[in-house]
Every structure is written in C-alpha cells, then in structure tokens.
C-alpha cells in the first residue's frame, strides 16, 4: 500500500529506442531520463515537438514498454495494469466515440474503472458540473466543439477518481477562453490534492499552474526544478508598475543611473521569463548535443 511518502511518479534511467520498420536505423526517443513527481504536485513537462515528452508519458502509462530503465506510479510498475487504477489520462487532441453522448461517454469509462452504477451516476453529475458540460450531457460527442471535447476528455480522465492525472498538450488547438478554463480546472485539481503532470510547448500555461518544471530536449531532461528557482535570476530585480506615466519611468531611470553599479536592463511590458529561459536551454542543449556527436 502506497503511503504519502511514495512519489506519485518515479522514472529512472528511462530509455526508449524505436526501430524504424524496413530500415536499419534506430531512433532514440528518450535517453536515460529520470524524474520524480511528488504526490500533490503539478509538474510541467516542456520541450519542443519530438523532444520525447509524449514517449515518456506513454511509457509511464504502459502504452509502450521501455527499452531500458523503469517507470512507476505510486510504487506500481507501469507495465502492471493495476498501476492504471490510480491514473487518469487525457491524450493530445483526443477523439472519443462520437456516437456516444457526454454522459454515456463517462458511464463507459466509469465502467472500465470498475465503478458501480450508482458511483457512475454520482461521478458523472459531479464531473459534468465541474467541466461545465451539464447542459450538453445528452448531446452526442460528434456535435461537440474542440474545447468541449477537451473538457469531456478531462472529465473522462477523472472519472475513476485518480490520484494522478496526466495531460498531454491539454490546450492544443483550444481557443484562449477554453484554454483558460482548462487552466482553472488544473488549479482546481491541485486544490483537491491531485497530482498532475502536464506536457506543453506553450510555456505561459505551464508557468501559470506548475509547481515544478522539467525541460526535455532530445530525449533528455536538461533542466528541472521549482519554477520560481528556475526563473529567478539572482542579481536581477523586477518592478512591475501599473498606470505609470512616461514621466515616472524617466525619473526611475534617472535614479538608477545615479546609483553605483546598478543598471537598467530593459523597460517595457512584462514578458514570459520562462520562455526566455526555455529558449536559452534549447540553445545550450543543441550546443551540447553537437559536442557529443
């Protein structure tokens, strides 16, 4: 029995090599990756397309088997079907059975999780309410918008009352309003103490909700840590002002100039610092990769 000290996810030395059919070539999708996600954390996995995020998630969920290393969920090996008893997964751009209605979809997945009829009814009501689809529960999924599909997907991931939720690119292709809604839902999960792993190449999203972030590039975890630690730059400070007049900004600039050693680096509207960090890591990563070769 897993106790609260067991990490929600533990990945050790994970390597996944794909053989291309009819060719001698091999592709190393994940290369000796290790990471750990503690229970109750929201973990963001970021990296460009093809960096190995999805492969890592698939191994974790038992959809593919690792070439080397291992992955486990709450202490149970990912190869074991039982490990999926405590996890909910939302794939990227999910399609569900479009001939089912919203509530039928949840009932179907609920049955797969071994819920009783009564449990299914209660969970469905609760989840549909939570993802704001109560009004569309009896409509077939064929008529759902992309954002609605994403939300029913999230509800589906939650139907078994998982302790870990894995979201692969949860906001891909969703409009900004829908995207915000999903962000709110992730925060709601966090509030309920559910561990969340989400992957994204949209950094703003990750920055807003994640406690911990891992950056994957070329199948390796190039940087990992608390978000605040990662993006804080020790010898720099940031002031964010509201309704500042140009005159005020000019006076501040003058004050800085008067100070010994201090320097005004830039002035403008705030930007995502994580994005900057990310780009920098990528640059270093490719330099390193080049050296390795």
């Amino acid at each position: 029995m897993a106790n609260s000290s067991t990490p929600a996810v533990q990945i050790e030395g994970l390597t996944k090599v794909f053989r291309l059919p009819f060719k001698q070539e091999k592709v190393v999708a994940v290369d000796g990756l290790s990471l750990q996600v503690d229970a109750g954390e929201v973990y963001g996995l970021i990296g460009p397309n093809g960096s190995g995020k999805s492969t890592t998630m698939k191994v974790l969920l038992g959809l593919i088997s690792p070439s080397a290393g291992k992955a486990s969920i709450f202490g149970l090996d990912s190869g074991d079907t039982a490990s999926r008893g405590s996890v909910g997964f939302l794939p990227e751009n999910p399609y569900f059975y479009k001939y089912l209605t919203g509530s039928e979809t949840l009932a179907f997945y609920g049955k797969l999780c071994g819920l009783s009829r009564k449990q299914i009814r209660e969970r469905s009501d609760e989840l549909l309410e939570m993802v704001d689809l109560t009004g569309a529960r009896d409509r077939r999924l064929g008529g759902y918008s992309k954002g609605m599909l994403q939300r029913i997907g999230l509800a589906q991931a939650l139907v078994g009352d998982p302790r870990l939720v894995v979201l692969d690119e949860p906001t891909a292709g969703v409009d900004p309003a829908g995207s915000r809604k999903i962000r709110d839902l992730v925060l709601e999960l966090k509030r309920r103490g559910i561990t969340v792993i989400l992957s994204s190449h949209l950094l703003e999203q990750v920055q807003e909700v994640c406690d911990e972030v891992g950056i994957i590039f070329n199948g390796r975890l190039v940087r990992e840590g608390k978000l605040n630690d990662l993006i804080a730059i020790e010898d720099q400070s940031e002031i964010v002002l509201q309704n500042a007049t140009p005159q005020l900004l000019e006076r501040i600039a003058e004050m800085v100039e008067g100070e010994e050693g201090a320097q005004l680096l830039r002035c403008g509207n705030p930007r995502t610092t994580l994005e900057r960090l990310f780009l920098q890591e990528i640059k270093e990563g490719s330099k390193q990769g080049g050296e390795d070769a």
């Binding site: 969920l61 999926r84 939302l90 751009n93 999910p94 569900f96 589906q156 078994g160």
Partner: peptide, 11 residues
Amino acid sequence: DRTLYTILTKP
C-alpha cells in the same frame, strides 16, 4: 483517433 489510449490507460 487515440481513443485506444483513453481505454488502455484505464485499468
């Protein structure tokens, strides 16, 4: 459609 993922990631 990746529907299979949602099924096989259930127990």
